[in-house]
């Protein structure tokens, strides 16, 4: 089982951003996060299908999504979700609503691959980084957006369902 040093920017002691979503700690390079906003400030009018509202950035509005800690789309925002993080994509932005956002210094942690027995080819999780008593899941914004897009293409279901990734 391979382990790699996680060094997103090429610099020692690089900073990264952790989005807390229920039991999930989703780690992004700090440059992936362009803005933070209170969830109470989102525009909830006429949201795009399967999104929960809009956020404004660079004179445009971008869809905001609410995800479970398994990265399933949620249509109702739990009360614990107080912050919206705007993620930069190759083309545009998306908002992800989360419980909490923190900036951490990445020191001597070892990055682990997602074990092959559990790794879907299209997973947005690039690797795993144990940190104290928690596990940071290293996310990729573009793959996360693709994961959301795949879910939005499916017909709405009456309750939580188990579908293919």
């Amino acid at each position: 089982m391979s382990t790699l040093r996680f060094d997103p920017s090429g610099a020692a002691n690089a900073s990264a951003t952790v989005l807390k979503i229920d039991g999930l700690d989703l780690l992004f390079q700090q440059s992936d996060i362009r803005a933070l906003e209170s969830a109470s400030n989102l525009d909830r009018n006429a949201p795009r299908e399967n999104s929960v509202g809009w956020t404004s950035y660079m004179r445009q509005r971008w869809p905001v999504y609410c995800l479970s800690d398994q990265l399933d789309l949620l249509s109702v925002v739990p009360p614990s979700r107080r912050t919206c993080a705007l993620l930069a994509l190759e083309a545009g932005y998306i908002g992800v609503i989360c419980d909490d956002v923190s900036i951490i210094k990445l020191a001597a942690g070892q990055r682990h691959e997602v074990p092959i027995a559990m790794k879907d080819a299209e997973t947005p999780i690039l690797g795993l980084l144990p940190s104290g008593d928690r596990l940071l899941c290293i996310g990729d914004p573009n793959r996360l957006a693709a994961c959301i897009e795949r879910q939005t293409r499916k017909p709405s279901l009456p309750e939580e369902s188990q579908c293919l990734a």
Partner: peptide, 8 residues
């Protein structure tokens, strides 16, 4: 994989 759309 759980990647459906949870409605609540």
């Amino acid at each position: 994989f759980t990647q459906g759309i949870a409605m609540s």
